[in-house]
Simulated scan of single mutants.
Amino acid sequence: MDEKYTFVFAVIESSGWLAPVAFILFHILRQFIFIPVVLVCIVGGILFGSVFGTIYSLVGLTLLSAGSYFILKMFPALNQKLLNLKQKWFGYGAKLTVGQIAVLRLVPFVHYQLLNVCLMERKPALGEYVKSSFLANLPLAFFYTVFGEFISEFTPGIIILIMMGLFILFYTLREKVRVIKWQEFFHQPS
């Protein structure tokens, strides 16, 4: 098994600039072959190290999000399906903040394109969307590239603690809005 890893590392080292370009393109194409983002970021950390793996993952994920922006604008039916899914998961009228989206991207089973739609609702202009997408992808790329190797060794208790921590972050980063009904606002004492 070690000979296979040695061979893979030797091929990557000898390929020069083609390996990072192939890795970035793989980030864009991975959604069509149903490979999770988390797995690709972990592989980036193993192959390129923490710093370059994070940079290449960020570039790939940001390009993927920009491509999703154009695809969702070109196919409004697909956008509407994702909006319906958003309403089922988060409720009607829920607008997630960029911080909440960043935290949800850390949860492996949350649909990546669904979060892109949530981000498009928050930041409809392309420039703002790409900037927010970069910021929302930063924790995902960093966390799974640097710590990805060790996540598989965590005990179930540690995983539950991490999920609870993510839930607390998600709750505290929400947009704090209070809706007052018409009757409550204009309540007349009897």
Rank of each mutant, 00 (worst) to 15 (best):
V179P: 00
H111T: 14
G93E: 04
P108S: 08
L106W: 07
F134T: 11
I24H: 01
Q100N: 09
Y171S: 07
F154Y: 03
F26E: 03
V8T: 10
L58I: 10
Q87Y: 09
K86V: 01
Y129I: 14
I180T: 15
S190M: 05
R30P: 11
M163A: 15
L135C: 15
S133M: 01
G16N: 08
F52V: 03
S152I: 13
L18P: 05
L169S: 07
Q87T: 14
A125V: 14
K176P: 00
S152E: 07
E3T: 14
F143D: 01
V117W: 02
S190T: 10
L18H: 08
T172N: 10
Y5T: 11
V103Q: 07
Y56S: 03
I158T: 11
T155Q: 08
M120G: 02
Y112D: 00
V40F: 03
F167Q: 10
L64V: 06
A94P: 01
F147Q: 07
V103G: 07
Q113C: 09
V177N: 12
L63M: 11
L39G: 11
L83Q: 12
L61G: 12
G127W: 12
N79L: 15
S68A: 13
V146G: 00
K131W: 10
I151T: 06
I42C: 11
T62E: 00
Y69V: 09
N79R: 14
S152Q: 11
V43W: 05
V146K: 05
V103E: 07
A77C: 03
I55W: 01
N84D: 13
F23K: 08
Y69I: 09
I160Q: 14
I151A: 02
C41R: 02
L63V: 09
V40T: 13
E175I: 12
C41T: 08
T145P: 03
Q87F: 09
M120A: 00
V98Y: 06
L61W: 01
Y171N: 07
A77K: 15
F186C: 05
